[in-house]
Write a protein that binds this DNA or RNA. Structure first.
Length: 205
DNA sequence: GTGCCGATGTAG
DNA sequence: TACATCGGCACG
């Protein structure tokens, strides 16, 4: 089984490729983390939901930092969101299967249930202890490591109002650790007939 | 199970 | 003012 560090070259690829590749990889931050099962992608150009569309400071940050840099920000005044810069895009790490430092994460979350530890970007940020102090840090030094093969499902992004129809929320198929399971619009990337796939999926519900 | 709602910081 | 969210509470 391959287990190598995800270096600068890994993140310096088209951001959608990086997003898909991250599923099944490992994230370990100061002893806490696990297997990544959900990642959302935002395009630096032409994506109304991306911070770069409305924030000059965000565009500047993207321009001044290389792929593999942490983009951490506070949302709703409460939740720290972990993102990683990639080529032409920013990737939100939304959920992972807890594997490392579980007692510490349980303490930070004040939550015993493993399913509730990292199943959402806010929970993940709290469990791993990310804060604004980590904004701008380099994550290519062993934080991310490759994992085994993963079957990918793509669905619409959630929690946003602008450009929400883009199928840029990537998950591991069948994973019980995601924030929200794939819905009727979910597709397997690379499937030519996504519409019929979505129809048959919704019909099985 | 569903749905509403308040918390709380900050960029624009 | 609008958020890339979450947990608690009401309901039944």
């Amino acid at each position: 089984m391959p287990d190598f560090n995800l270096n600068r070259e890994f993140f310096d690829r088209p951001f959608l490729d990086v997003a898909r590749s991250l599923i099944g990889c490992t994230l370990c931050w100061q002893g806490c983390g696990g297997r990544i099962v959900e990642v959302e992608a935002y395009a630096v150009e032409g994506d109304a939901a991306c911070h770069t569309a409305t924030r000059r400071s965000s565009r500047l940050f993207y321009q001044e930092n290389p792929p593999g840099t942490a983009y951490v920000y506070l949302n709703y005044g409460i939740h720290w969101m972990l993102n990683v810069l990639a080529r032409e895009g920013i990737l939100l790490i939304r959920a992972l299967e807890p594997q490392f430092g579980i007692p510490i994460m349980q303490a930070r979350r004040r939550q015993e249930n493993l399913r509730a530890l990292c199943s959402g970007p806010g929970k993940l940020g709290q469990a791993l202890g990310f804060t604004g102090m980590d904004h701008g840090k380099d994550l290519t030094g062993g934080v991310f490591r490759s994992g085994g093969a993963a079957e990918i499902v793509a669905d619409r992004r959630i929690g946003i109002t602008k450009a929400a129809e883009l199928p840029w929320r990537f998950m591991e198929a069948g994973s019980p650790w995601v924030s929200v399971p794939p819905g009727p619009f979910a597709v397997r990337p690379g499937n030519a007939d996504s519409a019929s796939e979505a129809t048959s999926r919704s019909g099985q519900r």
